[in-house]
Nucleic acid binder design. Structure first.
Length: 598
RNA sequence: GGCCCCGUGGCUCAACUGGAUAGAGCAGCCCCCUCCUAAGGGGCAGGUUACUGGUUCGAAUCCAGUCGGGGUCACCA
């Protein structure tokens, strides 16, 4: 198709499924095709690396493409020549106002105001679905996060993992993936025995006995209630009895109690899992055996002994023969034991079985969110999934770094013994779920995070949560004022507004920002980085506040234009579009948009 | 010692996965409230992206090495 200038009318613009950057990239590629067909470019060029993106410097225009530079070498042409030819053809398109060749060969496009105005129209009709993408094409993704041991309440570190994993899951969902949120319960190992013994001590205490908590038990207060609940359930049946008589029952009782605690903590944070997957359920069912057998059939299981740790002092190292997984065949640095020296399963084995199960459930992609202290586990887990799925199912492991707490400007060290252990519940009680979530997402997952109790509650620009919510509240405020002034700001009225009135540079600049939203969703989802959403919202809020404030100097930029309902509606439509994108973004982050600031 | 992450203005962090003159916010200096929320906005100044090489049209980003900070390191989970 040799694209003649495409004429677009107002109505059509409103109904385009708008990722304007993807659209213009499509135009660029189509134009290049015509150039190939006309013999202006050689055949067989790869266009994959060609981008259409907002330039860093707005003075460069609305959109930039690197097409000429990418193609110069393979086409054996000068970037400048390709750029000039391409520029000429692109400017035939009705949406393109001007094309400049700049720098080493960038093409800078300027688009018609109607394009940007049309984006606002699309947002108003699509609502918070604007930007919902097709990147995932419904591919099934499993996001495993939190997965904290069921031995106590969640603490700050877990909170970051929970918030990150949850936002990532929402982001992927928004980007068109079919997402399953999952929690792996480590209820199969020795620590749940420790939990059971600790609860038993609290149970004896509930019966009036004086107890001491020896090394290797959990002395935390949070088990007092569990001990009492156990007493309420079984009375004195286990008092003075051998461990063999009560351990199993108390273990089940205790892990259930802990999981209930954890679930309610997560709920308070706004996290709801689709699946809680029990490690214990893998034992005694042959499923671990099956997973290991699968590896064995691939020649990846053998009996052997590992070399001693390198460089470390030799202390009490002694070689032992164990069942090992040849993870080095899939990128690990060392083979890993799946069985202990005594022949029982090592922790790794059920985890292999668990991931085997995920693969068998047909996920196209797996994501594990771990705390940074589990970084040493990454390579072996990837090796296992690579082996089990024969390289077909990618596993991305995202590590969330440490959270440092600050109070009164000083670092706040957590210590179980000193009773200064900050739980997820403490965070929510003191700063609320919205602040907790947003703040934890204002940092890349693999960078350390400072969490300052005083600053996160501050209502200033320094506090991004507040700043973004404030923008939303301002929109709500304008809508209220407009209604009071007798202006119809109903959905229908705003959708019918004449957006061509939004022709001031300050307004167009905000429109360009909201137009970036679909593209941002894509790049954030592609890299599994929900923090990009938080930063984008902060920028968008900044742009909006900027426009708002310019109304102080330039009366025509105020959202409500006295005595001119039509213009007011157009401007409020813009404000509304901003609010919709903010709501969609905050929705991904799991933060409530505020209608009013208090 | 091995492996993983981090190192960007005085401080806290971004940088669309290799793009143009590296951007924000604090702190500093200068402006803006009879005006829909000033709980805000505009401007100035501030940088050899830890260091040294390499890859190419082009590097904060990729590779190698060095130096600093953190995490982790068989038979726990």
């Amino acid at each position: 198709m040799t694209g003649p200038a495409r004429v677009i009318d107002e109505r059509e613009l409103r109904n385009i499924d708008m990722n304007i950057f993807a659209e213009m990239r499509g135009l660029i590629l189509a134009t290049l095709d015509t150039m190939v067909a006309a013999g202006d470019l050689p055949e067989g060029l790869n266009f994959d690396a060609i981008t259409a993106e907002p330039p860093r410097d707005p003075s460069h225009g609305d959109m930039a493409t690197n097409a000429a530079m990418v193609l110069a070498k393979p086409a054996k042409m000068k970037p400048r020549d390709i750029a000039d030819a391409l520029a000429g053809k692109l400017s035939d398109d009705a949406r393109v106002v001007s094309v400049d060749v700049a720098g080493p060969g960038f093409l800078n496009l300027r688009l018609a105001p109607s394009v940007w105005q049309g984006v606002a129209g699309a947002i108003l009709t699509q609502g918070t679905d604007f930007g919902r993408g097709s990147l995932g094409h419904g591919a099934k993704v499993n996001v495993e996060y939190v997965s904290a041991n069921p031995t106590g309440p969640l603490h700050v570190g877990h909170t970051r993992g929970a918030v990150f994993g949850d936002a990532l899951a929402s982001l992927l969902d928004f980007a068109g993936f079919d997402v399953t949120r999952e929690y792996y319960i480590n209820d199969g190992g020795g620590q749940v025995d420790t939990l059971a013994r600790s609860v038993y001590l609290r149970y004896l205490e509930a019966h009036g006995q004086e107890v001491a908590f020896p090394e290797g038990t959990y002395p935390g207060d949070y088990l007092i209630a569990t001990g009492e609940a156990l007493k309420a359930k079984v009375g004195d049946a286990y008092v003075g009895k051998d461990e063999a008589e009560w351990l199993e029952d108390v273990r089940g009782f205790s892990t259930d109690a802990m999981m209930e605690l954890i679930r309610s903590d997560l709920k308070a944070l706004g996290v709801e899992m689709d699946v809680f997957y029990s490690e214990k359920s893998l034992y005694g069912t042959g499923r671990i055996e099956a997973a290991i057998e699968d590896l064995n059939a691939k020649g990846l299981i053998y009996e052997g002994s590992l070399p001693p740790p390198k460089g470390k002092a030799t202390d009490d190292w002694e070689p032992r023969i164990q069942t090992l997984f040849k993870s080095t065949a899939h990128g690990d640095d060392e083979d890993r034991p799946v069985k202990k020296a005594d022949g029982s399963w090592a922790y790794f084995a059920p985890d292999i079985a668990y991931h085997y199960d995920k693969v068998q459930r047909g996920f196209d992609m797996l994501i594990d969110v771990f705390g940074a202290d589990h970084g040493g586990y990454v390579k072996r887990m990837k090796a296992a999934v690579s082996a089990l799925s024969e390289g077909k199912v990618p596993l991305d492991i995202k590590l969330t770094q440490l959270v440092k707490l600050f109070k009164n400007g000083e670092e706040f060290k957590m210590s179980k013994r000193a009773g200064t252990f900050i739980t997820l519940r403490d965070l929510i009680d003191q700063v609320g779920p919205d602040v907790t979530r947003f703040v934890m997402l204002t940092r890349k997952n693999d960078a350390m995070l400072d969490f300052d109790f005083d600053k996160v509650l501050e209502q200033s620009r320094e506090n991004p949560v507040f700043y973004v919510q404030y923008a939303n509240a301002r929109v709500a405020s304008v809508m209220r004022k407009a209604t009071e002034a007798g202006i119809d700001v109903s959905e229908a009225a705003l959708q019918a507004a004449d957006l061509s009135k939004l022709d001031h540079e300050a307004e167009l600049s905000v429109l360009r920002k909201v137009a970036e939203w679909p593209r941002l969703v894509e790049t954030a989802a592609r890299s599994n980085e929900p923090h990009r959403v938080a930063f984008y919202l902060y920028e968008l809020a900044g742009d909006f506040h900027g426009l708002w404030n310019r109304g102080n100097d330039v009366p025509t930029l105020r959202f409500i234009q006295e005595g001119d309902a039509a213009t007011s509606q157009a401007k409020i439509a813009l404000a509304r579009a901003v609010a919709i994108v903010i709501a969609a973004g905050l929705g991904i982050l799991g933060v409530n948009p505020a209608e009013e600031m208090r």
